[in-house]
Amino acid sequence: MIELTDVHKSFGSKHVLRGVDLSIPKGTSMVIIGGSGTGKSVTLKCVLGLVRPDSGQITVDGNDVNTGDRDAFLARFGMLFQGGALFDSLPVWQNVAFRLLRGALKRPKAEAREIAIEKLRRVGLTPETADLFPAELSGGMQKRVGLARAIAAEPEIIFFDEPTTGLDPIMAGVINELIREIVTEMGATAMTITHDMSSVRAIADNVAMLHDGVIKWTGPVSRLDDSGDPYLDQFIHGRAEGPIEAVR
């Protein structure tokens, strides 16, 4: 269970989060939607403790995320960054197996490599990709390697920041299915940011819409179409006219 209570965050004079309240029950998939630049990525980073909120509380299973044993806390997480954030000094397979090659989860190199190749296969990449360097991959391939890295150590809680951006429709479908599988089969808790409405419907148990620094609407994915919320309606139908201004 992840809970955010009245989370605020500013960068300089820019007030990005203005009181975010959100809770994600264990083993469910939450999708966060919202305009570009509204603070979705910042919200995820706050939960991970990469960005410290100015005020408000964030707890995972009742424990505050900014106190206690950070290593043990982070060992439960996997994160796909919006830009992939692959280590460009390491070949692909060592990126994927990063956690398995050092620290508490360390295992023999051959075994780690095998796991890496298996994870790469799950995101639709061939074993030949394993020995390339991130700079040799296309944008969408990098994204999928980032995804493979996020799920490599089979974390309990997984964050995906725009997992299907830059992928072709078929590959996007594969990734959507994979995320759904991770939640239903492995019982993981997932938080996904996406702009792709078909992804939302494929991945989400619950949806939250971030606008103006607060959660404007949240509810089960089945209520997406008859929410009666003008902001949400404008957003999911991609209309230029409505309460959300096009220039932000």
């Binding site: 990469l50 060992a75 280590f87």
Partner: peptide
């Protein structure tokens, strides 16, 4: 460059 491309953040999330 690692900082700007979030690789430092990624390190942290990978318990390093």
């Amino acid at each position: 460059t690692m900082k700007v491309t979030e690789q430092i953040d990624a390190l942290v999330t990978l318990s390093t």
